[in-house]
Write a protein that binds this DNA or RNA. Structure first.
Lengths: 243, 243
DNA sequence: GACGCTATGTGTGCTAGCTTACAGACAGAG
DNA sequence: CTCTGTCTGTAAGCTAGCACACATAGCGTC
């Protein structure tokens, strides 16, 4: 199934890095190191101070809150449009969530101090990072709304679309169990919802591999939450850098 | 019931303003104007670009997402610990939520451009604003978790505690209908939950006025969400400014 | 001091999602 | 090719919260 050898990940595969002004790229790129993220790897736990931040290229990372009971809920998801570790420049050093790899792949790491320096010194860099952070905030807000008002079916659609947007193809390597953890629902609930989608011919899946057949239909079945986040994220990325 | 005349609101009643370095205070305070927020006033709608930001003193403002169907859900709440309008310095200019006054009172307004200048020019000011923003993010994340996993009873407790922390006394002027809107649940659900709390002697209420009798018990009945947000907010406020 | 508005109480179904339990089915290892 | 662990399917019973409907009760007003 693997299409030969993957091309090595490039720094510019990350949209945030690609959008940086040339000067910032020159400052930062020499300090970036490629890293591999296996599925399930925990990048940091709640309360951990961060030594470095990560810019995903073809990996996806979930920010998850884990309750005392062990139950969990996804707060937001980060792919090649962003970075892991906003608390480094937001000033808190740590957050209350866990960062866990949801889809294996690559990323680039950068020591926190390098990012902080650049962030404080250069306003263009800062604006990019903060606008990305606002997009992340929008995603969190919509997650709260979706958790309150929408069915598992709808939420599964949202989740699949968010993941698809951060990957190349139409294949997701992901068990229903893991999706259930992310959504904070039972595994059986996901089985049921996924079964419906398969019957409708929207997706096909076998043992931990989900293929999206009809993305358009998926968007129709989804609640408004996906579109709201997508639209706002696009808007925030589209701003001219030299505002 | 009103204890004579209220003292006029002071700039330093807002903790964020009070924490500003003296220089920033000198720059900004001359441009601040006191404003009155009546209950229910909409400060901005989803997508509105903001002319000014607001620093509440004794008012409380909810950030609410309103769905196409008209149903709503509170994303977070802002009182004298913060400001309304983070998108002004986060770079997006607008957000997808509505800001609506949840508890009448006062605030100070500041033209957006003044804030932006100060934010971009002075790193101490920036750090304060960004750390507050991170606290806001934490609150949103926990709202998402709470919406997913906790009962109306628990959420009501969380909501009451969040409101209490932003007010002087133990009285809330607030109907069950409005609470239901904030939590994104039915009014009857709130009636039931509030009835239980009253029977337990934790609160007393009559027609739009809620009095908290036993705050300690309220915290016990609450889910962990309140404590998580409270602790993280305190941590983020406690940082030395000149980090 | 009767009227009417708004806030609150209650009650009867209904449904989504939960808990628990177990059965089938695919895939890699030996 | 069988074994075993991991995924996925299904089912019975339960509960929280829903939608809808209507009853009561403060409180200001005229």
């Amino acid at each position: 199934m693997k299409a030969g050898k993957k091309p090595p990940p490039a720094l510019l595969d990350n949209k945030l890095l690609a959008a940086l002004p040339a000067e910032a790229q020159q400052h930062l790129f020499p300090h970036m190191k490629p890293v591999d993220f296996p599925l399930g790897k925990v990048l940091y736990e709640s309360g951990d101070a961060l030594n470095c931040v990560y810019f995903p290229t073809d990996s996806i990372v979930s920010l998850l809150y884990v309750m005392e009971s062990g139950a969990s809920a996804e707060i937001s998801v980060v792919g090649n449009e962003g970075l892991i570790g906003i608390s480094v420049f937001m000033g808190g050093e740590s957050t209350t969530s866990r960062a866990i790899v949801q889809s294996a792949g690559s990323a680039f790491s950068l020591p926190s101090q390098r990012l902080r320096n650049e962030f404080n010194g250069f306003s263009e860099m800062r604006m990019l990072m903060l606008r990305y952070t606002q997009a992340l905030i929008t995603q969190m807000a919509q997650t709260a709304v979706c958790n309150r008002h929408h069915s598992i079916d709808q939420q599964l659609c949202r989740w699949l679309l968010l993941s698809l947007d951060r990957l190349d193809g139409t294949n997701l390597i992901m068990t229903q169990e893991l999706i259930a953890n992310m959504l904070g629902v039972r595994r059986e609930g996901v089985t049921e919802a996924a079964g419906k989608l398969q019957q409708l011919g929207v997706i096909e899946y076998q043992r931990g591999r989900i293929q999206v057949i009809n993305r358009h239909r998926l968007e129709e079945l989804c609640c408004e939450c996906y579109a709201v986040v997508k639209k706002e994220t696009d808007r925030l990325q589209a701003f001219p850098v030299a505002a």
